[in-house]
Design a protein around this nucleic acid. Structure first.
Lengths: 144, 144
DNA sequence: TATTGTTATACTCTATAACTATA
DNA sequence: TATAGTTATAGAGTATAACAATA
């Protein structure tokens, strides 16, 4: 009974649950769904094609079409055909989109309210532990 | 540039993202949505009324009605009126529901594939850090 | 002919408001 | 009259399949 690994699993579940709920609340406070807020986040570093967005968001292209159409309707993104290949559409965030994104991040209290409880040293330690869990494909690291 | 807190925030985002994706894949592998799998999880420890489920899942009662109706249609839960107060419906998991839930948990590889990379000592350390972030309402702990 | 993106459609999640049955 | 749950309805996320435009 009361396996320590089960306890950790439950804590991780609770942590993820709290994180998701906080992000969703923050998005809604800015009038967005979390999927929309997430898409805007991906445009912060620069424009994307529809296909790139689908790959980054791990979803179908038809879904991206819908999300972008809604955001475009609200003036939060632009979608323009690439002059070099007119099949391709480049999506970029507008000023209004940046404003909405800032609003989400201002309302997203998880980092300060939760992670902020940790000391700097604890944050470094957490960062190391997370890095270990997230490292890609340790199975197939070449041995030679 | 490259604030360590920002780096931690990004890692937490990636961690949560990987967790959510893994749970969703596992649920789908068992023919369920993640909302359905989550509801089944809440019934493992015993039956619940519709209202209790709504409170635990942090969603509207009408949503629970729909989720339970689908699960009941698939034979994964039972819904019976409480004899003492016939307005109340008690929902419980069936044997088939337990089977589906086991299938989800077998397919849910995040704990072993990710958390399993940590040594026991690291897992204990992570557990302590998570406990600190999750502790309820430190603001209003009575001081007397 | 292959590729990019869109449209049509369908299913699920979720909420609000109006409703039924019971207390 | 108040409460537990359901129904009707609507908006959003998501996917599949068929399609249009372009290369």
């Amino acid at each position: 009974m009361s396996d320590p690994a089960d306890h950790l699993n439950q804590q991780v579940w609770d942590f993820v649950y709290a994180y998701d709920a906080a992000y969703d609340r923050a998005a809604r406070a800015a009038g967005l769904s979390s999927a929309q807020a997430c898409l805007l986040d991906h445009l912060e570093s620069g424009s994307r094609t529809m296909g790139e967005l689908a790959a980054e968001l791990l979803c179908d292209a038809s879904n991206v079409t819908q999300l972008v159409s809604r955001l475009e309707g609200g003036g939060l993104v632009d979608r323009v055909p690439d002059p070099a290949d007119r099949r391709v559409k480049r999506v970029s965030i507008t000023q209004a989109g940046r404003g909405a994104r800032r609003e989400v991040h201002r309302a997203f209290d998880f980092p300060t309210a939760r992670l902020g409880r940790l000391t700097e040293q604890e944050q470094r330690r957490l960062s190391e532990l997370l890095a270990k869990t997230l490292a890609p494909d340790p199975d197939r690291v070449p041995r030679g």
